[in-house]
Amino acid sequence: GSVVKEKKEKALIEVRPYVEYYNELKALVSKISSSVNDLEEAIVVLREEEKKASEPFKTDIRILLDFLES
């Protein structure tokens, strides 16, 4: 629970300088966080969101995924 939350919060802070739609990304992460149990599940849902998103938000999600998977 809290470790996953920390990882996601740290990821958002780390990617902030590189993303165009930070507030939207943060809102998406919050929405996903409330419906998943762990980081792996969150990553799966983020990948689905990435497929549906259009640029440049798609790239923002990709940047976040790269950080979460590192």
Rank of each mutant, 00 (worst) to 15 (best):
K31A: 09
E69V: 09
E40V: 07
N37Q: 10
Y22C: 04
L68Y: 04
S33V: 13
K51S: 10
I13A: 13
K31N: 06
E48H: 13
K5W: 13
V29N: 01
L65R: 05
L64F: 14
K58P: 00
L68F: 08
R47F: 05
K7H: 11
I63H: 03
Y22S: 04
N23Q: 13
E14V: 09
S34E: 14
D60Q: 03
E40C: 06
L46V: 01
I32H: 03
S70R: 10
Y21Q: 09
K26C: 05
L39M: 12
D38K: 08
I61A: 00
L46Y: 02
S30W: 15
V44Q: 10
S70P: 10
E55M: 13
D60P: 04
K52T: 06
L65Y: 03
E14P: 02
L68I: 07
K10I: 13
K10M: 12
R16I: 13
K52G: 06
L12P: 02
K5P: 05
K58L: 02
E24P: 00
L25K: 00
S54V: 09
V19G: 02
S54Q: 10
G1Y: 00
P56I: 03
A53P: 00
S35N: 09
K10L: 13
Y21M: 14
S35E: 12
E6P: 04
L46G: 01
V15S: 03
Y18R: 13
E48F: 14
L46Q: 00
S34L: 12
D60A: 12
E49H: 08
V29Q: 01
R16H: 07
V3M: 09
E6N: 09
L64K: 00
I61W: 01
G1S: 12
V44R: 10
L64S: 00
V36Y: 05
A53R: 05
V19L: 04
L64Q: 00
A27N: 06
N37E: 07
V19T: 02
E50A: 12
V3L: 11
V19Q: 02
K31C: 04
L46W: 03
S2D: 11
E24F: 10
K10N: 07
E24A: 11
T59H: 13
S35V: 11
V19M: 02
D38P: 04
S33M: 14
R47W: 13
N23A: 13
E49C: 06
T59W: 14
E14H: 13
S34P: 05
Y18C: 13
E48W: 14
S34D: 13
K5L: 13
K10T: 07
D38T: 13
E50M: 14
S35K: 09
A42H: 04
E55L: 11
I13Y: 04
S35G: 08
E49A: 05
A11E: 03
N37L: 07
S2M: 08
K5D: 14
P17C: 14
Y21P: 01
R16N: 05
S34A: 12
E69K: 11
E50G: 08
K51N: 10
K51V: 08
